[in-house]
Design a protein around this nucleic acid. Sequence first.
DNA 1: TAACCTAATAGTCAA
DNA 2: TGTTGACTATTAGGTTAG
Length: 790
Amino acid sequence: MLIRFYLLDVSYEIHSGIPAILLWAIAEDHRRILILDRSFRPYFYAILEEGANERDIVNKIKLLSRGDSPIVSVEVGSRKYYGKPVKVLKVTTVKPEAVREYREAVKKIKGVVDVVEADIRFSMRYILDNDTPPCQWYEAEVEPLEGVSGYRVNSVYSLVGKLKPLKIYTPPKIKTLALDIEVYNPRGSVDPTRDPIIIIAVATSDGDLKLFTASEGSPPQDREAIKEFMNYVLNYDPDIVVGYNSNRFDLPYLVERASKVGLLFDIGRTRGGIPRPSVHGHYSIPGRLHVDIYDFAEEIPEIKVKSLDVVAEYFGIVKRSERTLIPGHEIFRYWDDKSRRPKLLEYARDDVISTFKLFEKFLPFAIQLSSLTGLPLDQVGAASVGYRLEWYLMRSAVKMGELIPNRVEREYEPYKGAVVLEPRKGIHENIAVLDFTSMYPNIMIKFNIGPDTYVNCGCGDSCYEIPGVNHCFRKEPPGFYKSVLETLIKLRRSVREEMKRYEPGSPEYVILDERQRALKILANASYGYMGWVGARWYFRQGAEAVTAVGREIIRKAIEIAETLGLEVIYGDTDSLFVSNKPEVNKFIDEVMKVLELEIKVDKIYRRVFFTEAKKRYVGILEDGRIDIVGFEAVRGDWSEIAKEVQENVAKIVLETGDVKRAVDYVRNVILELKNQRIPVEKLVIWKTLTKSLDEYEVSAPHVTVARKMISLGFKVEKGDKVGYVIVRGEGSISSRALPYFMVKPSEVDVDYYTKHQIIPAAMRILEYFGVSEKQLESVSRAGKTLFDFR
DNA sequence: TAACCTAATAGTCAA
DNA sequence: TGTTGACTATTAGGTTAG
């Protein structure tokens, strides 16, 4: 029978010694189905030396066959390796684990140059070979499998033919369950072998909202709550389970906690299959997709502190001022105090609603990323930018008959990057910012840059010579990177074309918009990927060539601008700031003609201000908005008050030119600070712990604070943001830094915040106008009133 | 011993 | 677990004036 279905996930199991691919899907009629494909076998390639005796090597390989996973075939074939045609032997066995052993043995055979594609997970191998990424509709011939037990699905089938992709963009109705747990934490940090779960909050795509709570006791008893929750999950049977930071916390905690109270946390679609750690730091539930929204939040640089409430507010889901918030370390108190317990329940409910709504925001993009990269929806979020692109490249390679290079350990070699021009300091009126569109990907295409096109220089007209570095690339035929990038651009263009057929805001429009965005993100990651030592297609000379061409292009563009009488104020990598005169249009045309690259006006400043520093400027845009770049005001590691002061100073100076007013404003803030009128929250400084605590060589404030927090029983680890406030006292700044939630207004070191936060932030801009630090701090003399310095 | 200098460490942002 | 360039604060350890 022929069925149509939406593919959710691909996994595999071994059934009586033979691998079975499991295709988890939603059928057109909404049944949850599982399709088994028992015909697929693991394999790898041996690349043969030129002129090697194939027969001889085939026989030698066959002789290696042993045990319960014999070598079932050795086939001679042709592939390309870095663009060059090669003879390969495709060595097929039975069990995926056997690939590694055979690889080592085959590598040693004389006449075998290398062994490739032995390091690809079996289920991903299936997706690559059959071109069947998840999050797409397919049609396939299947046969019902009767009497198969052990799977919690409506029907199990056996695949007869191949999967045929369908051109349907809209996903089916997917059942989603969001969860959020609260743990009893009287000791600060929590431990599943000791601390019970007090609330499990659940929200589903069918609008159900439920709280499972622990029973009374000291400590509270959570066995029944966990059991009820498990039953709820099995009964609701979600396709997707969503959490916030659930890879690192909720899911592992639930599993361990359940086991501690004597329950098997069996909530998957295979019986007895409990959630377990998987690739890319992801925690997987058999047969369901577990999506951690935190992974997506992490990619938004605008959000500095990534707590759920802040992220939800950023996306306009729920304002922090309009929801219940409870400090994490006080959760147990809210539980113990019955009068405050309803607040805690409200808090958990708000969290799970935010989690669910954030998931709805991210889902369309995640779906597109999954169908492009082939990574299942639950892994695609956890995978880094480099791995996402790599899976796209691997899919492309298979389609092109290119062998996938091995992942190898390499030594890191630095190379020169982009140029940044010395800014002309001061205020400039009416400035246009011109940007080359997708400069690096376009350079890679234009100069056919890649490992497979790299040639010795001195090849004349047949190759491109890269200026400044001794690298050359042949012009024809197009290399791997060029082919892939051109495909990405072509696909994106066609998606954008198709978007025009739909009403903005319609489901189809949103889907296509997310797809074009995913395509752009993949293309833009290509240069960084090529320069990443961990990449399969790593090529330092290529990355070096790309930046070299970039530098040359900017140099030439400056020349063109100056010839046309346009003053260049500043430039960074692929942008130029020039006076916004009619000649700008001529400049754009000339750049296109001479450099054959597109350049566009990105923004226009009515007024823009530079100090002598690079990568820092502030301007007023055409619509009157203040745009701050690079300065403290847009950094996450400065106190809110310093950022606010700097932004307002910039605003006053740019809008009115009234420096005196700006000075008065700063003095007033300093006065308010001294009078304890600035709330402590505005004084918190957040910094990331970028390594584990014992790796630090100096005791920076956030490091000492992290140590203090740990000794108080909190859990602080690598990757966490630590918020601290500097208090009065003796000694170094570090020794006077305290966790922000422990600081009373009276303890704040007002002097530190004046001298090291507010004044430096304000001076960054005011210095240029001849203001001295003394002018700003003169108020500090013995707490006089406002009138004493006016 | 306080004041001052400098290299190294660390974090974050621009592109 | 995508790249290099750039800026800045703080620590840690020294030197120097007095």
